[in-house]
Amino acid sequence: MRPHHLAWSVCLIPIIAAHGSFLFGLWEGVANECVPYVGGCTSISRAAREGNAIFLFRGLMMPVAALLVLFWYLQSVWLKQITQKAHFWTFVSGAIGALFLILYVDFLGTEGDFYRFLRRYGTTLYFALTVLAQMFSIRSLQQKSAELDTHIRRYLNLQFLLMVLYWCLGIANVVIKATGVSWADQSENVIEWHFALYMSFYFGLSAMMWKRSRFDWQFSVGKP
């Protein structure tokens, strides 16, 4: 498997896990029927823990956590090749975020306020630290944008656009919840589905960058 295949795995497996779990719930008759990106009838967590969908979600997302640690190691090595600088914090942020993904997935489906707190704690820090690592990476590449291949620069611009979307979604969520409108929970679910999808797209764009630059395992050994 080439490095860009690993990056595609980190992109596609979470998408398959979330949507597959929702469709599995529909098939079992335990999930609400709607388009979650529009209706917000369920969150990703709720869709994943309804019925037997939890086994599909856990079975796919646990390996993703390990792949994410490897991805951020490779990303930091790739960035070092381009910038001639170490990217320790990019790796650390992404790797710790992956550990919190394990915490979230492990306690998914458990009952009680304490376990609910751990799930929310895990998913919040997973998203926050993963996005932080993405921000570090984008900023490092932007500083060398004039030296980048045209296609890689285009993919970088798309990653930056995703980052703008993250912030817009986050601000919208805060504003809607602050207003206390009756549909705030549904709105939060809609935003969560979009946010998770766009966050996965980042890794697909990274895969195309790696492939374009011919990044391979033989160039991947070293300090981040």
Rank of each mutant, 00 (worst) to 15 (best):
I82H: 09
T83M: 10
Q84V: 06
Q84Y: 05
K85Y: 10
A86M: 13
W89C: 11
W89M: 14
T90R: 03
T90G: 10
F91N: 15
F91L: 15
V92T: 14
V92F: 15
V92W: 12
S93P: 12
S93M: 13
A95W: 10
A95R: 08
A95L: 09
I96Q: 02
G97V: 09
A98C: 13
F100Y: 15
F100A: 00
F100V: 02
L101W: 07
L101G: 12
I102N: 02
I102Q: 05
L103D: 00
L103Y: 00
Y104R: 00
Y104S: 02
V105R: 05
V105P: 01
V105M: 05
D106L: 02
F107T: 08
L108P: 14
L108A: 05
L108W: 13
L108V: 09
L108H: 12
G112T: 11
D113M: 08
R116F: 12
R116D: 15
L118K: 07
R119S: 00
R119P: 12
R119T: 03
R120Q: 15
G122R: 01
T123K: 01
T123H: 05
T123A: 04
T123N: 03
T123W: 02
L125K: 04
L125S: 03
L125W: 13
Y126I: 00
F127E: 01
A128E: 02
L129H: 06
L129G: 04
L129E: 09
L129T: 00
L129W: 04
T130R: 01
T130L: 10
T130M: 03
T130K: 01
T130E: 02
L132Q: 06
A133K: 03
A133S: 13
Q134H: 11
M135C: 06
M135Q: 03
F136H: 08
F136L: 07
F136N: 10
I138R: 01
I138S: 08
I138N: 15
S140N: 08
S140Q: 07
L141D: 00
L141S: 03
Q142R: 10
Q142L: 06
Q143K: 14
K144D: 00
A146K: 07
L148C: 15
L148A: 10
L148G: 10
D149P: 12
T150V: 10
T150H: 11
H151R: 12
I152E: 05
R153E: 13
R153V: 03
R153K: 14
R153Q: 15
R153C: 07
R154W: 06
R154D: 04
Y155F: 12
L156K: 06
L156P: 13
L156M: 09
N157A: 10
L158A: 06
Q159F: 06
Q159P: 02
F160M: 11
L162F: 08
L162D: 10
L162M: 06
L162K: 03
M163K: 02
M163A: 04
V164A: 06
V164Q: 09
V164H: 04
V164L: 14
L165A: 13
Y166W: 07
W167A: 05
